[in-house]
Each structure stands twice: as structure tokens, then as C-alpha cells.
Design a protein around this nucleic acid. Structure first.
Length: 747
DNA sequence: CGCAATTACCTTTTT
DNA sequence: GGTAATTGCG
């Protein structure tokens, strides 16, 4: 053996020295997976003579990619190993071979708000009212289809065969039109990056073979989170050489809502019959009690790939469940506890992390931390690249790079204000479409556009001249180009010297973007390109900004927490409706509830030494304060229950043993009992004027009559009545809201 | 015809 | 408590 095996367990060492053929590494939390993977890469290069350029390592997040890249480089100084995310990898392939599927290498990557904007136009063109069919929901369905590699044509076929539903009717028309609009703009959305590449590899066998030649050893991390498109990409490449190593943990699959297929990891051995499986079950991260508690929780899921977690570490501190009277006390209590822990001198700020299910929950904690003078960083909120002024500037760059980009054009043609309003824009674009011109070409010839005002003609012309005058070659670097754009458009002028704090922030953001561009210029040197910078900004996520060196407490969503570890972890809001999220309760399947359980499992197993779960007796959601119900997951784990009173003192503590295999949801299967109109009202004693959540058009469910739509609502409080039309047997029934077991289903 | 303030809407998780 | 479409005004 050699230095690569130092300090490894037998199974870890086995994985490190595995070379050819398919390999599945089932790695529990804290089992040293990254260490194994990086050493395996080093082993391939050092001992198996694999050239680094023949290696392809894929992770899910940029952060993971960066981390893995850095650790590989530490083992292989001077060697360049390309660790990339799926999306980045696909972007690169598309730049190179996109013409095969009709995409030019200068393509733009649209973010979610651009997608919405584009789809809104498409829906309007199709005469769908965007009130009833919101772009978000349509987009969500399109995204689902793309993740499953269902093309617009396939979608149509399915629609013809299957039972029709009015949403699919809309999507059936909108999807092809949206896709056409994307191609006309020479743009792709996030899902397209994957779908185009997957289809390309399936159709172009020669190209697939060529790429498989280049990427002779493939490694995919977090395999349990791959969706169908990602699966197809990997499978297509690996079929040629079978040198595929995947790592993952079915218990940490938390992206089902994004189309991830947990089955992909479960069926690996069937897909690759010669596959070897190595399990990493020893946990080196958490103390005994933390691991035991997390394990008893996850044991309540129906598991297919059983995995035993164990640790050699001492039991340590118990998992603590802190119960607060309200969410303010919860936030303050967390802040105080962090202060106390740090004051003992055993910990520093950066040892602490706070996780929550929804980003909206961070706000109260942030205020409490500020009040207690606890330094912190948040991996969420308004993402930097989501800010309007940043997007606008990036749209300028996009339009320079890709003149076909309609979305970018629309975004900036009148920003800063040039007196080019909607009507003028529509006239111009309509004419451009008729004459098969790009928006910019149409601007140049604005005088030919019918009915345009003199002012508009001049405005469009000036705009086109300005944009056409911009180029990376002319400016020299991305940073310089950005500065040129800012100067020529007087971009920050409206905010400069304003006493308004928000305005000052905008100016600061612009400066930060310039700094980011300069940094990019520096890093890439002569390899810098506009598309390179744009790609980086499009595919970056907020988690990537987390600094692990600085002395700050980290706040993030449970999803963002995956792959990280902290000595001290707080998970807040252990309440029904939050963890598990109410959305997972509404669906009848157990699948989503299990995913919620895995999410909590992921959060808990981030903790090394101390783990706190918190809940609040009351919480205000959507502007209304309601009593909470403890998360059903709580009784599935072992913890010390601590009631905290108003003064922040620990009032009562009691030890709690897990109740094995609790029912998925109390009451009727799949129906959260306390969500019925009756109990909503009854639970809320006295206050009769609380508007109950029934609205016309709302979908509801009645245990006897089934699903229906609310057609009428009248009366208030205890006398509020709801009329429901049941589609099943085409009947109308009127109920007293406070008595009927009606369950709202949404809309 | 274009702009700015007001209203109505929604609100999971992320590449 | 935030954003986007809609309305009213210049």
C-alpha cells in the first residue's frame, strides 16, 4: 500500500484503489466520502497512468466542485483536474457541439425570472390569460417535462394518449412555443442545458463515442440526486467504457421536487451488472448520541438499501429540543445560547450553523443575532445576481454577446429610461419578426418601422449604435467593458448622491459586479471571454459565497446545508407544516413525507458535537399567527426536551426516547387532520372573525364526496358557508365551514 | 404615449 | 413582507 491509504478503514482503502469498471460507493453522512473520492482520483492519476484530461468529476454544487478540486490539487500538485457541476459540464459541451441541436456557441443562459418573462410573452401570444395560468406553474410543468427528457413533441403524444387535464392542455401548446422562443433567442434555460446534451448524446452516437473517449473515467457525486436527464448523460458516456464511479446516499436524497430520481442509485447494480458496491458506514463526524438520534429518525423511512451507521466516538452531549413560547423567543434563545457557547471559550462563531426549512424563517433569527451582537452570514435572501441592477447590467453583456437574446433586449432597451415604452417596443419587435431581423438590426432600421414616433426612432437607433459599439475586443477585458457600459449609459447616475439607502446599495452592488468581473479577468487571463463570465454568473448559487474561514455564524436552508459540517448545529421550526413542509402533507403519497424526513436527517447529521432542535408554540405564517403542532418527526428521535419560558430560562426538561415507526400522519391517511376547515376554526377559540381559507375557485376535498371546487362563499365566522361543486358526480353541496370536514387542497 | 404610484398577489427547497 | 401587473396621471 502507499500513502494514499494512510489512516483509512478497509472499505475506504478498497474504494480508493478501485480502478476499472463500475463502482458504487454508498456513503453515509460523515463517512469520509470526499476524502475517499479525492484520493481515488489521485490514485488513478499517480498509479494507473490516467491522464487528468481523461477524468471527469461531477458534483451538484459549485461549492462542492471547488472543494473537491482544491483537495485533489493538494494531493496532485500542479495537475489540473476538472471538477464541474452537471450544468457547467453541459454548458461546455453545448458551446462546443451545440450546433448539432441548433444552438450557437454564443447562447445565453436564462435565469428563472428571464424564463418567466419569456413564457409570459409566449402565453400572451397564445391568448392564455396569465392570471389563471401563471407562468410559474406552467414553467414548473415544463421543467418537470425537461428533467424527464420529454420534448415538446413527446409531450404532445402523451397528451393524446392520456387523460386530458386542462393544465396539460395549456402546457401542450405553451411548451413548444416557449421552446421555439428560446431557440429564436439562441438561449437555453437551466433544464435545457441537461436536456439538449442528453438528447444529443442519444442521437449522435459518433459524438457520444468521441466524448466517451475523452472522458474515460467518470465520477459522479451525490448520485441519489440525479434526475433522468443527468442519468441519461452519465449512462450514455459510461456505456462505452464502464468506468463509472458514483457516490451517494439514498437517505440524503432531497431533490425529488426537482425531478431527482432516488431510484437511479437504487438500481445502479442492475444498470451495471458488473458493478462493485462499497459501503462506508462508519461515521467520523458526529458524536454517538447525535448519530443515534438521526439514525432512529431515518429508520422510519421504508429503506431499500439498508445501511448501518456507527461511530467510534463517545456519546457526547444529548440532542436538545428547545421549546419556546413564540418565534421571537426562539430567535433570541438561539442567539443567547450561541453567545453562551462562545463565551465559554470552547467554540468560535464559525463553529455554529443555523438551518431552517424555508428561507423566510431566517429574518427573525437575523434580527436576534444582530441584537445579541453575534456576527453571521446568510446563504440566501436576495441573491446578489438576482438584484435588478445586476441583472440589467448582465443583460447588456448578454446582448453584446448574443444579439438574438430577446429577453436581454427587452430588459434593457429602456433602462435607464430612454423614452422607449411598451407600445414602441412591441411595434419594433413585431416588425423585426416579420422581417426576420434581430432586435438590434431592427433598431438600426427603426425608421422603416411603421407608426413609430420620431423620438422612438432616434432612441432605438442610438441604443443600437451604443450596443454595437461595445465589444470585449474593444474594451480589452470584461471589467473594462462593464465600466464602459456603466459610463456610456449613465447607469448609476440616478442613484448617485442619493440620501436613500437603497440607492446607495445599488451603487455598491454595481461596484461589486465590476470587482467580480475584474477578478474573473485576472483568473482567466487570455482565456477570458464574455460567455465565460456570463456562464459563471448564471450558474453560481448563493451558497458559493459562504466563507468558511471567517468568524461568523452561518445561516442557511436545510437544502443548502448538504455536504457541510459544523461543530454546533441549530435546526429551527420543528413544526408540522414546516418540517415536514405543508406541501408534502397535501400530497397523498408517502414519498414526499419521506423526503422531508431525509431533509431533517441531512440537517441533523451536519452536527459534530452539539445539536439543537427548536420549536415555537406559536408562529406567524403568511401574516397570521397560529398555534403550532409539533413535528411528527420529533417523536421518532431521541432527545432531551427542554421547555423555555418567557424569560429565557430552562423551565422543565425531560428525556425522550424515540417511538419506533410512528404513523406517517395522524388521522386519516394522507390527510392532515388539523387542516380541515372545522378544526381550523375550532382550534381558534373565540375569535370568530378569522377569515377561513376558502376562496372561490379553490380546490377542496371532502371525505365523502371527494374532490371539488369552491363555487361560492358567504357568511362569516361560525356561520360561514361554502358551496362546492364536486366534479366526480357533478353535484353541488353547501357546507357550514366550521362544521364540515372540508380540506383545502390549494389554488 | 410614457412614467410612477397603487393594488393585488403569493410565499419550499436550487442549478 | 415582498414583488409584479394594473391603474391613474403628466
Amino acid at each position: 500500500m502507499n500513502v494514499l491509504s494512510d489512516g483509512l478503514t478497509d472499505s475506504q482503502a478498497e474504494a480508493v484503489h478501485f480502478i476499472n469498471g463500475p463502482l458504487l460507493i454508498v456513503a453515509g453522512p460523515g463517512s469520509g466520502k470526499t476524502r475517499v473520492v479525492t484520493r481515488r482520483i489521485a490514485n488513478l492519476v499517480m498509479n494507473a497512468n490516467v491522464h487528468p484530461r481523461n477524468l471527469l468529476a461531477i458534483t451538484f454544487t459549485n461549492k462542492a466542485a471547488k472543494e473537491m478540486g482544491a483537495r485533489v490539487e493538494a494531493l496532485l500538485p500542479g495537475q489540473r483536474i476538472w471538477v464541474s457541476t452537471f450544468h457547467r459540464f453541459c454548458a461546455r459541451i453545448l458551446r462546443e457541439y451545440g450546433d448539432v441541436v441548433g444552438i450557437k456557441s454564443s447562447f445565453s443562459i436564462l435565469d428563472t425570472s428571464d424564463q418567466k418573462q419569456l413564457l409570459r410573452i409566449v402565453l400572451n401570444d397564445l391568448d392564455f390569460d396569465t392570471v389563471h395560468f401563471s407562468p410559474e406553474k406552467v414553467l414548473w410543468r415544463i421543467s418537470d417535462a425537461k428533467n424527464d427528457l420529454i420534448t415538446p413533441e413527446n409531450f404532445n403524444e402523451r397528451f393524446d394518449e392520456g387523460v386530458s387535464n386542462h393544465w396539460d392542455g395549456v402546457v401542450r401548446k405553451a411548451y413548444p412555443a416557449y421552446q421555439k422562443a428560446l431557440l429564436e433567442s439562441n438561449a437555453v434555460d437551466f433544464d435545457d442545458l441537461l436536456m439538449h446534451v442528453a438528447l444529443m448524446l442519444a442521437e449522435q452516437t459518433e459524438l457520444c463515442r468521441e466524448l466517451a473517449q475523452r472522458y474515460r473515467y467518470i465520477l459522479v457525486d451525490e448520485y441519489q440526486d440525479t434526475n433522468s436527464a443527468q442519468y441519461q448523460i452519465v449512462a450514455a458516456l459510461a456505456q462505452h467504457h464502464q468506468n463509472l464511479c458514483v457516490t451517494g446516499d439514498p437517505d440524503q436524497s432531497i431533490y425529488g421536487w426537482r425531478g431527482a430520481r432516488i431510484e437511479n442509485i437504487l438500481r445502479f447494480e442492475r444498470d451495471f451488472p458488473t458493478a462493485q458496491t462499497i459501503r462506508l458506514e462508519q461515521n467520523f463526524r458526529s458524536t454517538g448520541l447525535i448519530l443515534r438520534s438521526a439514525d432512529s429518525l431515518i429508520a422510519c423511512n421504508r429503506q431499500l438499501k439498508a445501511k448501518k451507521l456507527f461511530t467510534a466516538q463517545a456519546d457526547g452531549e444529548p440532542v436538545r429540543l428547545l421549546i419556546f413560547p413564540d418565534s421571537r423567543a426562539e430567535a433570541a434563545g438561539i442567539a443567547q445560547e450561541i453567545r453562551d457557547l462562545v463565551d465559554t471559550g470552547d467554540y468560535q462563531w464559525s463553529d455554529v450553523a443555523i438551518f431552517y426549512r424555508v428561507n423566510a424563517l431566517s429574518r427573525q433569527v437575523e434580527t436576534a443575532l444582530m441584537r445579541h451582537r453575534v456576527p453571521f452570514q446568510v446563504a440566501s435572501g436576495v441573491a446578489f445576481y438576482d438584484r435588478a441592477e445586476i441583472k440589467d447590467l448582465l443583460a447588456y453583456l448578454r446582448l453584446v454577446e448574443n444579439p438574438l437574446d430577446h429577453t436581454a433586449f427587452l430588459r434593457i432597451v429602456n433602462k435607464p429610461l430612454r423614452g422607449l415604452g411598451k407600445t414602441s417596443q412591441n411595434r419594433l419587435l413585431r416588425w423585426a419578426q416579420l422581417n426576420h431581423l434581430t432586435p438590434l438590426e431592427a433598431c438600426v432600421r427603426a425608421s422603416e418601422v411603421p407608426k413609430l414616433s420620431k423620438r422612438a426612432i432616434v432612441g432605438f437607433r442610438r441604443f443600437a449604435e451604443m450596443i454595437n459599439g461595445f465589444s470585449l475586443a474593444g474594451a480589452g477585458s470584461v471589467g473594462d467593458l462593464l465600466v464602459e457600459i456603466i459610463d456610456k449609459t449613465y447607469f448609476v447616475a440616478p442613484w448617485q448622491g442619493s440620501p436613500n439607502e437603497a440607492d446607495a446599495e445599488k451603487v455598491a452592488n454595481v461596484e461589486e459586479l465590476v470587482a467580480a468581473a475584474r477578478q474573473y479577468d485576472e483568473a482567466l487571463g487570455d482565456d477570458r471571454s464574455l460567455q465565460g463570465f456570463l456562464e459563471q454568473t448564471a450558474l453560481i448559487s448563493e451558497t458559493d459565497f459562504l466563507e468558511n474561514t471567517s468568524g461568523q455564524v452561518s445561516l442557511m436552508s436545510l437544502h443548502a446545508a448538504k455536504g457541510l459540517e459544523f461543530p454546533i448545529v441549530f435546526v429551527l421550526g420543528l413544526e408540522e407544516g414546516l418540517i415536514p413542509h405543508e406541501r408534502s402533507l397535501q400530497s397523498e403519497s408517502r414519498r414526499e413525507l419521506e423526503e422531508e424526513r431525509r431533509l431533517l436527517f441531512v440537517g441533523m447529521t451536519r452536527a459534530e458535537e452539539r445539536l439543537y432542535l427548536t420549536e415555537s408554540r406559536i408562529r406567524s405564517m403568511h401574516g397570521r399567527t397560529v398555534p403550532t403542532i409539533e413535528s411528527p418527526f420529533i417523536r421518532e428521535l431521541e432527545c432531551e426536551r427542554i421547555d423555555v419560558d418567557d424569560t429565557g430560562e430552562f423551565a422543565a426538561t425531560q428525556w425522550q426516547q424515540p417511538v419506533p415507526e410512528s404513523k406517517p400522519t395522524p388521522g386519516l391517511p394522507g390527510i392532515p387532520k388539523l387542516m380541515t376547515g372545522a378544526s381550523l376554526l375550532n382550534g381558534e377559540k373565540e375569535s370568530v372573525d378569522i377569515p377561513i381559507g376558502f376562496r372561490i375557485g379553490m380546490l377542496v376535498r371532502h371525505p365523502r364526496y371527494g374532490r371539488g371546487t369552491v363555487t361560492d362563499v358567504s357568511g362569516y365566522g361560525g356561520r360561514r358557508t361554502v358551496t362546492v361543486h364536486f366534479s366526480g358526480d357533478d353535484k353541488k353541496e353547501t357546507f357550514v365551514a366550521s362544521k364540515a370536514p372540508l380540506q383545502p387542497l390549494g389554488e
